[in-house]
């Protein structure tokens, strides 16, 4: 029994690695995309919105394959690192979703908050960082929590381009006629998401001291 368990742990480490790297990169990239999609410069705004449409409108599984194969087929520079390919696809995909959540949060802040900052002589960036941002964060914690939990499970899609994540590890045993390792992968996801739920609950509680 220790053989399969160890293999599953090793596989799950890949899921967690992909999850963590995606978060660290997609959270700021999402904000950049938000600024693009809210830009007053029309061409940039429409370009960004088309980009979001394409990324959200096509399967993540397909995007994984495109990132792995397209550089080799189109540019003649094959993508050698599968994990890197998976990371790129995940970061772009999740940044697009995050950006829409951010946009919703930013647009929900009353105009009066910006005006109050302005008449006190604050610059636009001071108003954003000192007045608006924390209110936005408070509002987007629940929808971002949803995305985070979805992301943990989506990391398994990386197996389609050969990243040795937990489901791929488990299927090795299935082929040998051993089925319980595959079913037991659920426990790993449940444990991770249990932890995430607790952390998200704490974040919500921490922002409970004010109402916005």
């Amino acid at each position: 029994m220790s053989g399969p368990v160890l293999a599953l742990f090793e596989g799950f480490a890949e899921n967690i690695r992909l999850f963590a790297v995606t978060l660290v990169l997609a959270i700021p990239l999402g904000l950049v995309i938000t600024f693009g999609s809210m830009s007053k410069f029309r061409p940039l705004k429409w370009l960004t919105r088309v980009f979001i449409w394409v990324i959200r409108g096509t399967p993540l599984m397909l995007q994984l394959m495109v990132v792995l194969y397209a550089p080799g087929l189109l540019l003649g520079i094959p993508m050698s690192n599968r994990f890197m390919a998976a990371t790129i696809a995940f970061v772009i995909n999740y940044a697009a979703y995050f950006s829409e959540i951010y946009r919703g949060g930013i647009e929900s802040i009353p105009k009066g908050q910006y005006e109050a900052g302005q008449v006190l002589g604050m610059t636009k960036s001071q108003v954003f960082f000192k007045v608006v941002l924390l209110q936005v964060i408070k509002r987007i914690v629940p929808p971002m929590g949803n995305e985070l939990i979805t992301l943990t499970k989506d990391t398994s899609l990386a197996r389609v381009i050969g990243v040795a994540e937990i489901l791929m590890s488990a299927e090795r045993f299935t082929k040998q006629g051993l089925i319980w390792p595959l079913f037991s992968t659920a426990l790993y996801f449940l444990a991770l998401n249990g932890l995430l739920t607790i952390l998200l609950g704490r974040a919500e509680k921490k922002l409970d001291y004010f109402r916005a």
Partner: peptide, 28 residues
């Protein structure tokens, strides 16, 4: 710079909800 000649009190207060009364007053 020039709007600082004027102070403004709004109909709907527009206080910053994440700051205390004192922080609202001192932030700017």
């Amino acid at each position: 710079r020039r709007r600082m000649h004027f102070g403004m009190v709004f109909q709907s207060f527009n206080l910053f909800p994440q700051y205390t009364a004192l922080q609202n007053v001192t932030l700017a």
